[in-house]
Design a protein around this nucleic acid. Structure first.
Lengths: 244, 244
DNA sequence: GCTACTTTTTGTCAGATTGACAAAAACGTA
DNA sequence: TACGTTTTTGTCAATCTGACAAAAAGTAGC
C-alpha cells in the first residue's frame, strides 16, 4: 500500500455489553428492547457508537450502560470480550463492534433508558437455545460471553464477583452450578474451595436460611488467579468422542 | 445520545500481528523495522490500516503480513488477541488497533516488504524484558500474545502448530519449555502426552538426531481441546504468597 | 566387534487430588 | 423431644503428579 493519497475508510466503531448476573439460581443477561431502527423492537445487547473520536472504548461502554439501562455501574469491571466485524452484520454500513463482558452481583431491575424502549434480565438459556432471538449477531456475542465466564470460573476467583460482599460456600456453589450449568457435589466443592489458598477468607460467624445448619460467612480473598484450577467436569455427557 | 445530527467520529482502524515461532528452542516474534514515520526506524509488529471499508480485519491482517514480511501464510490461523485503543497510542490521531495472534512452525526468514525496511525474528525475551524497544504500545501487545500462547498450551493442542506435520514427543516438549520458559521432566511429559486421548497419533516409525535412541514420530490428533489440561507449574518460583 | 555415550521409552513409588458417599453438627419446626 | 434440613467433617478407593531408576535403541570411537 504505497498510496500517498489514501482515504480513511468509513468505519463506525461501536461497543456492545454482555452483563451477566445471577437471579433465582439462573444465569441472566441484560438485554434492551431496541427503540430505533434497525431491528426496532427486537431484543439486543446494550451498546452503541463511540460518541467522539477521543472517547475510549470502556468509557463508551460505561456511558451506554448508563444511558440504556440506567444502571449505576461505575465500579463494574469490564473485560474485553472480542471484536465483531463481519461486514454485513449491520445494515447501516460497516460497523465494527467491540464487546465487553461484566459479571455483577444481583443488580436492581434496570429501568429503560433513552435509546432503549425497555431493559431487563433474560435467562441466558433462552438466548443460547435460540428461543429468544436477538438483533444483529448478538446471540453469538452472548454465547462467547457465557463461554468466557465459564472458563474464567476455572482459573480465577471470578465467582466472588457474582455474589455480595459476604457469602457462604453454598452461595459460591450456586454460582458455579448456574454458570457451568451442571450440578456439583456439595461436599467435594466445599473441600476444594476451602483448600484453595486465598480464594476466600472467613468473615465472622454466620446465619442464613430459615432451615438447616447456619452456614459460615466468607469474604473474597486476595487471590485473583486460582492456582490449582477448578477444573470443570467434561462438558459432553451426551458426547461419545473417544480417540486412540 | 438522542442526537439526530450525529457526526461519525474520525477513527482509524488498524490491525497488528503477533506471529510467534520457535527458533533454536527459543520463542521468537516477527518484527519489522518501520520504514515510515512515526517511529521510523524502530522495531514494530507488522500491521497497518484497513484498506477500505469492506475489508475484514482478518483479511487486512493477512494482507499486511504479505506486504510487510512477504510471508506466504494463507494457511496461518489467526486468532483475535485484543483491541488496543488507548487514545494517544498513536501520534497520528485516534487509532484503534485489533491485534491478532498466530503460531507458526519454523518459517523461512522473511524478506522486507514495501512498507517495512526490514523484517525478521527476534526472541520474545528481549522484547518482554525491555531490552528491545518497540514502537507504539507493541511491547504490551507482544506480552499479551505470549501470555495467551502460554495459556492456550494448557488447554488446547496448540503445541502441534509450532512443529512440522510430523514430530517427536521431545519436539513437543521443546515447544512447551520454550513458551512456558521452564524446564519439564521428559519422563513425566512423555507419560502425560501419551495418555491424553487424541492429542497425538502415531505416524510411522522414526529416526532423528545423530545421537541417542531414535524417537517415534507422531502427527497432530483430532483433539482440539485437551480435557485433562496440561497444568503448568506455578509461575512464581520466587513468590512467597501464602494465605490462610 | 566392543565399549562409551546419548536420547527415548517404560517403570516404580510415595504423596496429593478427585469423585462417590457416610456421618456428625447445628440449627428450625411440629 | 423427635424430625427434617443444610452445613461441615470424614473415609476410601481410584487416579494423577513429581521425582527418580532403569531398560532400550541408536551413534561414535577405538
Amino acid at each position: 500500500m504505497s498510496d500517498d493519497a489514501w482515504e480513511p475508510p468509513a468505519i463506525l466503531l461501536a461497543v456492545d455489553l454482555v452483563i451477566l448476573t445471577l437471579r433465582e439460581a439462573r444465569l441472566h443477561v441484560l438485554l434492551v428492547e431496541r427503540g430505533i431502527e434497525p431491528y426496532k423492537g427486537a431484543q439486543a445487547l446494550p451498546g452503541g457508537f463511540l460518541q467522539h473520536s477521543q472517547e475510549s472504548l470502556v468509557a463508551a461502554a460505561h456511558r451506554e450502560l448508563a444511558e440504556e439501562a440506567d444502571l449505576d455501574v461505575e465500579t463494574l469491571c469490564l473485560e474485553q470480550l472480542g471484536v465483531y466485524d463481519d461486514p454485513g452484520r449491520d445494515p447501516r454500513g460497516r460497523v465494527v463492534s467491540v464487546a465487553f463482558l461484566a459479571i455483577a452481583p444481583r443488580l436492581p431491575e434496570p429501568t429503560a433508558g433513552t435509546d432503549a424502549a425497555d431493559a431487563g434480565w433474560q435467562p441466558t438459556d433462552r438466548v443460547l437455545s435460540g428461543e429468544l432471538n436477538l438483533a444483529f449477531d448478538h446471540r453469538r456475542i452472548v454465547t462467547d460471553g457465557v463461554e468466557r465466564a465459564r472458563a474464567k470460573l476455572e482459573h480465577s476467583a471470578l465467582a466472588t464477583a457474582f455474589v455480595g460482599p459476604t457469602f457462604t460456600i453454598t452461595d459460591l456453589q450456586d454460582v458455579y452450578e448456574a454458570v457451568w450449568g451442571m450440578p456439583l457435589d456439595p461436599r467435594n466443592f466445599y473441600r476444594k474451595i476451602k483448600k484453595t489458598d486465598g480464594f476466600i477468607v472467613p468473615a465472622g460467624s454466620a446465619r442464613k436460611a430459615a432451615t438447616g445448619r447456619p452456614a459460615r460467612l466468607f469474604r473474597a480473598g486476595p487471590r485473583e488467579a486460582l492456582y490449582p484450577p477448578m477444573i470443570r467436569p467434561a462438558d459432553p455427557p451426551n458426547g461419545k468422542e473417544q480417540a486412540q
